[in-house]
């Protein structure tokens, strides 16, 4: 799915022109150069300065601009769990295990990085911890973007299921 992006010029980051870089966009297979907002499928950053900069500044961690769909099982279940109600990490882990009848167990590292990725992409947000509960545990809630992502994933899964079922039915007849 193509997405809209803005090009960051070195000046806008408060950097000297030394960091000037070139960005090329591939649109439907054609290679072109542009520095205005553009729809693109893939992008290549050329120039050591910018590559180094990307590394050092830690931007686009885990591909901030990259599409998150299709969701992995872990991402999907985390979002579905938060769709039901805001929760903390431990609650999500238990919830997912229950929803999948024990099949999907999300490890601590997987959950921690997934929560950070979802926060960065704006699919979930921090949620104020209700008074009287354990304030040590950070809580999370799904955002509208998160709900949209779940809906999109569900229709994709539905399509897959339908296609499979149709074939099964046609063979039985």
């Amino acid at each position: 799915m193509p997405l809209l992006t803005t090009v960051r010029r070195p000046e806008s980051l408060g950097l000297p022109a030394f960091f000037l870089f070139e960005r090329r966009n591939i649109i439907d297979g054609y290679l072109c150069q542009n520095d205005i907002d553009i729809r693109y499928n893939e992008q290549y950053y050329i120039g050591m300065g910018y590559i180094g900069l990307r590394y050092i500044m830690g931007r686009d961690e885990m591909g901030n601009k990259k599409e998150i769909l299709p969701l992995t099982e872990a991402f999907y279940y985390i979002l579905v769990s938060l769709y039901a109600m805001p929760s903390h990490g431990y609650g999500i882990m238990q919830d997912v295990e229950k929803m999948s009848s024990g099949r999907v167990k999300i490890g601590a590292g997987t959950l921690y990085t997934a929560l950070n990725t979802l926060l960065n992409k704006g699919l979930i947000d921090h949620y104020p911890v209700p008074e009287g509960t354990d304030s040590r545990r950070k809580m999370y809630a799904i955002t509208n973007d998160g709900k949209t992502a779940v809906a999109a994933e569900m229709s994709r899964l539905e399509e897959l299921l339908q296609a499979g079922r149709l074939v099964q039915l046609s063979i039985k007849e």
Partner: peptide, 20 residues
């Protein structure tokens, strides 16, 4: 064998961070 990273996608992300 308990693991911190329980699926391939997140393990790859972890490896990528180390590589970076």
């Amino acid at each position: 064998t308990p693991r911190l990273y329980t699926d391939m996608a997140s393990l790859v992300t972890h490896y990528r961070k180390i590589q970076r």
